[in-house]
Simulated scan of single mutants.
Amino acid sequence: MTSASNRPPQEPARRTVVAALGAAGIAVTLTACGPDGGPASGTSGAGEPASGASGPSSSGSPGASGPSSAGSPGAGGVLARTSDIPEGGGRIFADRGVVVTQPEKGRFEAFSSTCTHQGCTVSGIADGVISCPCHHSEFSVTDGSVRKGPALRPLPARKISVHGDGIELA
């Protein structure tokens, strides 16, 4: 009978090695499209507010996401005032993972702020287009559809509700 201390050391299972290599590859890919691959902090590379909106924001600080109430990130609470979202443009709330647009007066839409190409945070909105800084994909402010690749899928819609002059994530 052999005791456990006399057994030769075992090599890691092939599955373990393959899983570790896969995880490392994903980490490298995400790093390439993360904060170092493009701004994800709510400002553009030039230090401008990330909204790139076609009009001024009522918030005085770059990347500010407007009024919000306490709660879990990404759900509930006032995200912005309707007056914060310029007609024909929009505003990016990177901390909440959402882009809110106003394609036409009084109509508000919301989409994920994560580019469907490789996961970068979109950084600008101008001329009816939401743009990604990493690989220059462009999406429509109207429906999130791809206007210019390399992204192949639209920005996923996010559910919002408008109560009076407040916009909330549903």
Rank of each mutant, 00 (worst) to 15 (best):
R96V: 02
P67W: 09
K105H: 12
K159M: 10
G45K: 14
V18A: 11
V18L: 14
S161E: 15
L79D: 01
I167Q: 06
G71K: 06
G74F: 01
T142V: 15
D127E: 15
S131Q: 08
P39G: 07
P67E: 13
V146Q: 00
D84E: 15
P103M: 07
G37H: 01
G76N: 11
G74I: 12
G34I: 03
V129T: 04
S57R: 13
G88M: 04
A157F: 05
G25F: 10
R153K: 15
G25K: 03
C115K: 03
P133T: 05
G97Q: 05
H135G: 09
P156S: 06
G128Q: 11
S145K: 10
C115W: 03
G149T: 09
E138L: 14
S41A: 15
G74D: 00
G106P: 03
G76T: 10
G90D: 06
G128R: 11
V141Y: 00
C33Q: 01
S83V: 11
A70F: 12
V141G: 00
G63L: 06
G37K: 05
G55Y: 07
A126N: 12
D36Y: 08
T114V: 15
I26F: 07
G52P: 00
S69Q: 12
G89Q: 08
S72Q: 13
V100L: 08
A157I: 04
I92L: 00
A157D: 11
R14G: 03
M1Y: 06
C132F: 07
A24R: 10
E48T: 06
T31M: 04
P12M: 13
R96A: 11
P67K: 12
G60Y: 09
D143V: 04
A126Q: 13
I26D: 02
E11H: 08
V17K: 11
C33F: 14
A46K: 14
G22C: 09
V129Q: 08
V17Y: 09
M1T: 11
G128M: 01
T29H: 13
R15A: 14
G63E: 02
T31S: 09
A23D: 03
D165E: 15
A126V: 11
G97D: 04
S61P: 04
C120H: 04
P73D: 13
D143W: 08
I92P: 04
E87L: 11
A126L: 10
R15Q: 08
R147D: 02
A20Y: 06
A46T: 14
T29Y: 09
G106R: 01
K148N: 09
T16W: 07
K105F: 12
